[in-house]
Simulated assay, not measured.
Amino acid sequence: MKILLLTGSPHKKGTTAALASAFDRGAAEAGHQLTRFDTAFMKIAPCLGCDHCRKNGGRCVHGDGMEEILPALLEADLVVLVTPLYYFGMSAQLKAVIDRFYAVNAALRQSPKKALLLAASGDDEPGVMEALVLHYQAVLSYLHWEDCGMLLARGMSTPEDLADAPYLLQAEEMGRRPLGER
């Protein structure tokens, strides 16, 4: 299976980086082909809504890191979105990438894909991730992608918080069996 993992945290050794690495381990162990982009460390400009991409075969006016991401996105069977929760939503870095899906929108909507969401929040209140989940579900609904699960790690501000929690093992298992197979 071809898996595209997109992280959105600006912290190379943060909580969601640890979750993404656990997922990576599981996917590698299972023999999946995984491509990972840590989007916060790439030059990716926000979408301008200028339609340049629509008039030029998907080529954006920016000519940035999305030129690496889009081919992997189009080839992927499964897209894994990994983000810290920043004020009730995904990180701006990951959001910029998702906004830029617009360049290949028609192809994405016609390509059956599956998706997973891995997210971490320092806050542990039950409803803290509701807006993030709704946004994720709206994107999947629009693109006609199938949701294969979510790992919502509440109350996990730092990687050290993960030590006594089940989330790293769960992320690794999701990598091994990304479509929830038993």
Results as ranks from 00 to 15, higher is better:
K2W: 00
L4Q: 01
L4K: 02
L5V: 13
L6Q: 10
L6T: 07
T7K: 09
G8F: 07
S9C: 05
T15N: 01
T16L: 03
A18E: 12
L19R: 09
A20T: 09
D24K: 12
G26A: 07
A28D: 14
E29V: 07
A30D: 02
A30G: 06
Q33E: 15
R36Y: 03
R36H: 06
F37M: 02
F37N: 03
T39G: 07
A40I: 01
F41T: 01
K43L: 13
I44F: 10
P46Q: 10
P46E: 07
C50H: 08
D51I: 04
C53K: 03
R54M: 12
G58E: 09
R59F: 09
C60N: 07
L73W: 08
E75F: 05
A76T: 09
V82N: 03
T83M: 06
T83P: 04
P84L: 02
Y87R: 12
Y87F: 15
Y87D: 06
Y87V: 13
F88M: 13
G89F: 12
M90G: 09
S91K: 06
A92Y: 08
L94M: 00
A96G: 05
A96H: 10
V104R: 11
A107R: 11
S111H: 10
S111M: 09
L118M: 02
L118C: 01
A120T: 04
S121D: 00
D123M: 11
D124H: 14
E125N: 13
P126D: 07
G127D: 14
V133S: 15
Y136D: 02
A138K: 11
L140M: 11
L140D: 09
L140N: 08
L143Q: 08
H144F: 05
H144L: 11
G149N: 12
M150W: 01
M150G: 07
L151D: 05
G155V: 04
S157T: 13
D161K: 14
A163H: 11
Q170S: 06
Q170V: 12
R177N: 14
R177M: 08
G180K: 00
